[in-house]
């Protein structure tokens, strides 16, 4: 049977990808951020996943406002990246996966999560930056990725409780798949940040550290917050914590926090990295 071996939270800020393209990882600005990653990369090397289920949000590459799914997932064997308009370099295609993807899509829809199911889907920095930062040489073509996009762009956005529940069904679907696969979950984005308005630049270290603690010990406490409360406490784009909740929801076995790093700011955003081992 397929098993979930870990959940990993990571930032997906475009500046991270740009820094890697320009070899800026060792500069004082970026070093405290990138210094968090070697233990996670080593773990991925020692415990290679067959499949990564990657929760992210699209920022206007694949989905425009004309048809913007609340929850979408890919079932394709390949995902292309493309020009996002402001200069982040495109990266090689990401390998997809079809069998587990369809198994998950079927399970979710049977259990009342009516996903938008995509056979073609361009993936943006929300997906590509986490892949690049985990496999810095872009040597990830052997990893099969199932991208899951959650609307964090336009209200109404899904409730945090709904994202945690979505994750629970992902967990059940993955663990009922009858092939021996190691699956790692990525919860990408976050943490506190606000890009728009006179409140731009909002960061709350206090809220972020509370989220990082509760994500392990009591994710329901985060899921009990409303979208309004998250905006107040974590900034307008702090809603990206929804991807972390989806990831966490899928893990209902024993958890062991192997590594954690918090650093702010990168660009306008606080970053949180957690490697959470999962077993039964």
């Amino acid at each position: 049977m397929a098993k979930i071996t870990a959940g990993i939270t990571t930032s997906h800020i475009p500046a991270i990808g740009v820094a890697m393209d320009n070899n800026l990882e060792e500069t004082p600005y970026f070093k405290p951020f990138f210094d968090g990653y070697p233990p996670v990369r080593q773990w991925l090397h020692d415990n290679p996943p067959d499949v990564v289920v990657l929760f992210y949000n699209d920022h206007g590459l694949e989905f425009f406002l004309d048809r913007k799914p609340t929850f979408a997932m890919g079932v394709a064997d390949k995902y292309e990246n493309a020009d996002e308009g402001w200069g982040i370099a495109t990266i090689p295609p990401i390998t997809g996966e079809t069998e587990l993807s369809w198994h998950i899509a079927t399970h979710l829809i049977e259990n009342d999560f009516d996903m938008t199911v995509c056979q073609e889907m361009k993936v943006d920095h929300g997906c590509t930056v986490p892949m690049s930062v985990m496999w810095p040489d872009k040597n990830y073509s052997h990893i099969k990725v199932i991208p899951v996009a959650i609307n964090c762009e336009r209200h109404p956005m899904p409730n945090p409780s709904r994202c945690l529940a979505l994750g629970k069904e992902f967990g059940k679907a993955i663990e009922s798949f009858d092939q021996d696969l190691n699956v790692v979950l990525f919860g990408t984005g976050g943490m506190s940040h606000q890009l728009d308005g006179q409140r731009a630049g909002f960061i709350s270290r206090e809220f972020d550290l509370w989220c990082m603690d509760k994500l392990i010990t009591d994710p329901q406490a985060i899921a009990d917050l409303s979208i309004s409360e998250i905006i107040q406490r974590g900034g307008a784009q702090g809603v990206e914590i929804n991807m972390w909740l989806a990831m966490r929801g899928a893990m209902h076995g024993n958890l062991k926090l192997l590594h954690s790093n918090y650093y702010a700011p990168i660009s306008n955003t606080a970053t949180g990295l957690q490697l959470i081992e999962h077993s039964h």
Binding site: L61, E153, P156, G197, I231
Partner: peptide, 29 residues
């Protein structure tokens, strides 16, 4: 949504209001 000072909640009303503007910006991909 609760109003938050200095924050422009991008909701359905704003999405309708700004559709042409956002579509123009989206084309810049």
């Amino acid at each position: 949504l609760t109003p938050v000072e200095g924050t422009y909640h991008f909701d359905g009303k704003m999405s309708n209001k700004g559709y042409a503007l956002n579509k123009m910006c989206y084309s810049l991909n």
